[in-house]
Design a protein around this nucleic acid. Structure first.
Length: 326
DNA sequence: ATTACCGCCTGCTGGC
DNA sequence: TGCCAGCAGGCGGTAA
């Protein structure tokens, strides 16, 4: 499933290749992925046709293409979504849901192709999604409540200080309640620590709460907790501030490491959600490793049912707290 | 207001 | 061989 680093890799690819592109046609092949566009598929297509992409922005796992109309094409990859840039004559993918015909800006011939110059190159931006948890919709943009840039935008490496171009202080309403993520320069570590202490819940529930910090899914939650030697049911209220800061550092480290792998694995926008991209081949200490030895101490990794999902822990490094908060 | 849980989706896997 | 339960899980909606 696409996690934050994969979404950021997609964002960078889009920023590079489709900034300045103009939408020439739109085809919705399945209604479900545009369900969040309430006026319907025809209106969705009409609002995109003829528009030019001015920026590509991400907050958490929400991604959007800012348009010269002042609106934005929103995208969420959900569990199995992909955004791929293809030649117009490429065969349809099995789970192709939406197709946007694009005219690339002058001087760009798109990824992995260098054919004749002099005329604008056409490509298709395709939304492919097997399970359709994700989707596309067109949305207005509203000012960010804090007046700061919306998230990761422009070209460059947001994880590197000074890298990237600040995005405009505009967000889609659907994203206003989504917290910034740990790769966002405007992420407020101190504010997060303070809010965590007011919560009456367990640590992993808090990490997965997108209104506290965004972009953390099941995999990164488990990996960061393992690195921090913390159990998922540890009460947030009892966590010392230093441990909170350490945990956030581990979240950032594991994401930046994945970003480094993912960012060098693709020369197109294709991200293989089934894991053969090299991204998921990265070593996971505990996630999905039930019954295998903990890389740190050798105890066998345990799998617990948690929130209708799974949590993987090392029973020795991450003992169950005596006062657990499930 | 805060917290917890359900259901949406499809394809693959394993047990019988 | 076929059938079906279980599983993957982010997020919006809703109940308590």
């Amino acid at each position: 499933m696409p996690e934050l680093p994969e979404v950021e890799v997609v964002r960078r690819g889009l920023a590079r290749w489709v900034t300045g592109a103009r939408v020439v046609d739109v085809e919705v092949l399945h209604p479900r992925p545009v369900r969040r566009h309430e006026p319907g598929a025809a209106d969705f297509a009409a609002r995109l046709s003829g528009r030019t992409v001015t920026d590509v922005v991400r907050r958490g796992k929400f991604l959007w293409l800012a348009l010269d109309s002042g609106e934005a094409l929103m995208a969420h990859l959900g569990m199995s979504g992909q955004l791929v840039l293809q030649p117009r004559d490429a065969a349809d993918e099995r789970h192709l849901r939406v197709r946007l015909g694009l005219e690339l800006p002058d001087g760009s011939d798109g990824p992995s192709r260098s054919d004749r110059s002099g005329e604008r190159q056409e490509r298709e931006l395709r939304f492919v999604d097997q399970r359709m948890f994700g989707g596309l919709w067109v949305s207005p943009l509203v000012p960010t409540p804090d007046g700061l840039p919306a998230g990761a935008g422009g070209l460059g490496d947001v994880a590197a200080p000074g890298g990237g171009t600040p995005s405009e202080p505009l967000v889609p309403p659907a994203v206003v309640h989504i917290a910034r993520d740990v790769l966002d320069p405007a992420f407020d570590v101190v504010g997060f620590a303070a809010r965590l202490r007011t919560r009456r819940t367990g640590l992993k529930r808090a990490l997965l709460d997108q209104t506290l910090v965004s972009g953390i899914g099941n995999i990164y939650a488990d990996e960061a907790l393992w690195r921090s030697r913390l159990h998922y049911a540890r009460r947030t209220r009892t966590l010392p501030r230093s441990a909170t800061l350490g945990l956030l550092g581990h979240v950032r480290d594991v994401m930046v490491a994945a970003l480094g792998e993912g960012g060098t694995s693709f020369d197109s926008l294709y991200v293989d959600v089934n894991g053969s991209s090299g991204y998921f081949d990265r070593s996971l200490a505990v996630y999905g490793q039930e019954g295998r030895p903990c890389p740190r101490c050798g105890a066998l990794v345990r799998r617990d049912a948690f929130m209708n999902r799974s949590s993987f822990t090392c029973p020795r490094c991450q003992p169950t707290p005596r006062t657990a908060h499930w």
